[in-house]
Design a protein around this nucleic acid. Structure first.
Length: 264
DNA sequence: GTATTAATAT
DNA sequence: TATATTAATA
């Protein structure tokens, strides 16, 4: 099991395979309807084929998720802030490199746009530091305005060393000794190692008082023979849970929403 | 061969 | 529009 980004997704119609997370409570009091009869197109994709060529629902970037994204980018620095590394640092299960890449693209545009009206004047410590930055058009970037931009994003960072500031969510560290080459996993490890003090309490996520939770999908956090770096304490959930909500009647588009838990 | 990015498509 | 997907490229 060398690959780690292979997550089997259960989708409409097909119940989670036995190899996946077994339902915590076999007695599903609320699972009645489920997606029993989701008007499936003639013979689309979701039917019985494994999660190989399946299309996942569109990812909805919630402010929390974006926060995580920004945090990861902030800690990695512009140079190391590449999709794969960001994805790994975020440690959000279900999140793919493509997801991050797409979002990163837009995020860069947002930063660029901001640079434009920031003035470009050096030393301008006025804007961008805290939550409220100058937004060109509130209607164009609601999400981005929700998360504080670490300032230095307004200009490229020479040197190429990982940036250290703010908090770091967690240390996924999927270190795997591969061939000697520029493996970013090492870079991310180095960037993370530069943070001597981080310790985030990740409580339970959805744990509803009633004990009712759905979406037993996704099972990551397995196959990680590497120990945590200097934080062998708690060992709980990875940091995020995913929720699949299919209630978009806008053409029958499913939407995947990742729920960040831990900090906001 | 993988990964990132810009462009494009849905 | 927001995100996915492709195409070109490093």
């Amino acid at each position: 099991m060398p690959s780690d980004s292979v997550s089997v997704f259960s989708f409409v119609g097909i119940p989670p395979p036995p190899n996946s997370l077994p339902p915590a409570t076999p007695t599903h009091p609320n699972s009645s309807a489920d997606f029993a009869d989701s008007a499936d197109l003639g013979s689309g994709a979701a039917g019985d084929e494994p999660a190989r060529t399946l299309k996942r629902p569109r990812l909805v970037w919630t402010p929390q998720l974006h926060k995580r994204f920004v945090d990861a980018v902030a800690h990695l620095g512009i140079k190391n802030a590449v999709p794969k590394t960001i994805m790994q640092l975020m440690s959000v299960d279900g999140l793919t490199r493509e997801n991050v890449a797409s979002h990163l693209q837009k995020y860069r545009l947002y930063l660029k746009r901001m640079q434009g009206l920031s003035g470009g004047s050096a030393g301008g410590a006025g804007a961008g530091a805290a939550g409220l930055a100058a937004s060109a058009d509130p209607a164009t970037d609601h999400l981005f305005a929700s998360s504080p931009v670490p300032a230095h994003f307004l200009h490229s960072h020479p040197g190429g060393r990982p940036n250290s500031e703010h908090f770091l969510p967690f240390v996924p560290m999927a270190l795997q000794q591969h061939h000697h080459h520029q493996q970013q996993q090492q870079q991310i490890a180095a960037a993370v190692a530069a943070h001597p003090q981080y310790h985030r309490q990740v409580g339970h996520f959805g744990s509803p008082p009633n004990g009712q939770f759905e979406h037993p999908f996704l099972a990551r956090q397995s196959s990680q023979p590497v120990h945590r770096m200097g934080a062998p304490l708690h060992n709980s959930v990875p940091g995020y849970v995913e929720d699949l909500e299919s209630a978009n009647a806008t053409g029958g588009r499913k939407v995947l929403t990742l729920f960040p838990i831990g900090d906001d």
